[in-house]
Structures are given as C-alpha cells and as structure tokens.
Amino acid sequence: LPAKQLTHFATVHSGTVNMVSASADGLSLSHRQLQAKEGSLSVSTSFVTQAAWCVLPSRILLVLTSQKGIQMYEADGSIMVYWHALDASESSPGQAVFARGIAASGQRFVCVGTSLGHVLVFDIPGKGTNITLSEVLEEHQGAVTDIAAELREQPEGSIDLVTADDSGGLCAWRSGEEFQLVSKIPASGGSCSSVRLWNGVIVAGYGSGQIRLYEAASGTLRAEVAAHARWIYALDVAPLSGKLLSGAEDSFVAVWRLTCNPDTEGIEIRHCQTECVMDTQICGARFCDPEGRTFAVTGYDLSEIIRYAQL
C-alpha cells in the first residue's frame, strides 16, 4: 500500500514530510530505498529530515535533506541530478548538522534550510545537472525548520517565500536574481515547526500547539489558534480552496478554512473538522489535490499512509 500511495503522491506532485523517516547515506540512495523512507525503516547512518517534490515551471525535482547534505532527484526518484554536501566543520562541537526545509521558489530556484540557520538558494536549469548554489541567505539565528513558497500568478514584487527557525523566528522574502528580505517576525512562543504561505498570509505552526496567521508584508499578527495539545509537525494549504491541514503529536489532524478578503483586509480562520488517528503521533500530513478534498497522514512507528477523502 505505501508504494501505491507514493505513486499517487508523485502524480499529484505533492510530497510527504516524514520527520522520523530514514534512508540510505550519501550517494547510494536507490529507488527502492526511496520507498523505504515511506515505510520508515531506520537502517543506516544518515537520517533523512525531509523529502519533498519541488515543482518549478520547467521541471519537477524530488529533494531530500539529511544529516549529510541535500540530494536532488528527477521527479520519479530514478536519477540523482545533484548532491550538495554539508560542511560539518562550520558548526560548533556538539551541534547537530543537517539540512531541513525545502521549497521551490520563483521561476527556477529551490531553497533549502540548514541547521546553521542559512537558507541555500539553488539555481535549477530547465534540464540537465548543471545546478548551482546561487545565494546563501543568513538571517536566521536558529536552525531552519521549514520553508514555504507560493507559486501562483501574482503581482510583481509580492512576497513569495517564507522561512522559519527553531527559535520561532520567521522571515518573508521576495524571490528574484537576488532574494530580498521583506519582513522579519521576531521569535516568540517557542519553536516554529512548520510554515505555509497563502495569499500573502503566513501560516505558522508551533511546538506549543498554536497556529498563527501573520500578514506577510507587514509581519502583523492576525489570528492565534490554540489548535493542538502537542507539538505541531505538519501544515499544508490547499491553494485553490484555502483549506488548511494541521497534524500534531496529540494524534489529531484538523482541517481549517482560511478566508482572505482583499477589500476589508480581513483575514479569518475557521475550524472545519478534526480526525483522531488513534495512538499515532502524526509526523506528516498533506493534501492530495489542490482543492483539498483529500488528504493523507502518517505517523511515528507507522508503516502506513492513511488517506482521508471528503464525500
């Protein structure tokens, strides 16, 4: 079943975040082992922190981040096109080294966060393996936890990238030849574990179980939700409907609806439904279609991906 689900994910160009997933070290990752990450099999020396499909107008890449570095594959996971090794010597002794947070941005960039708080911007050509590191953004104090981008058609100069870190700090960026920092939201309320961007609204999930909505341009707090009793692991937004999905360690997965009225500048969030995945600490949750009619979740020690559909 997981393998089937994986194909499903591949066809809808979505991804899974699987914090406790593991996979092969360094360069020797095979297609079969890519599936093994879905089955959460811990067999080797380097733990994969995140895996996501990056959808750019010209191509789709599967990007994996781990303790050793960043791997980029063709969308079906068959060929590895790029490998970026992390330099462990830069960090102080005792500090863990890893990459975490993946997002496609603008026309041709893929952004990946690191434990040092840097955001690496890679320039992706239309085809081939000539991927280059074009920029390093150094604004975060803590390790990067998540990166989100918005790829919709939008007016020139609007914010299309947001990055989050361990201390709870958020940065909103404008992509381009050189990425510009637009607003910076200072850390408050613990680690920001997950972040999404929708219609110029930053949706942030925290270790404390809170979800907050911020105006990306100004950094103003617009809503605060006591959403979960434990650490939030995953957020996802269905871009067409404005539905929001949240999954946490309290074994609950919730669906919310975001509304954004450009005339009155009203930003609202409404609770739609909650499902309990019995005795499962949820560590990955994704919508399976842009409308948000179906979603899939997985959890720690769980070898299954559970899919929910709206009837």
Partner: peptide, 9 residues
C-alpha cells in the same frame, strides 16, 4: 501550551 479550542482574530 493552551487547552486547544480557541481562535482569536
């Protein structure tokens, strides 16, 4: 952590 159940706008 707060007890879940409240939305503030």
């Amino acid at each position: 952590t707060e007890v879940p159940g409240l939305i503030r706008i």
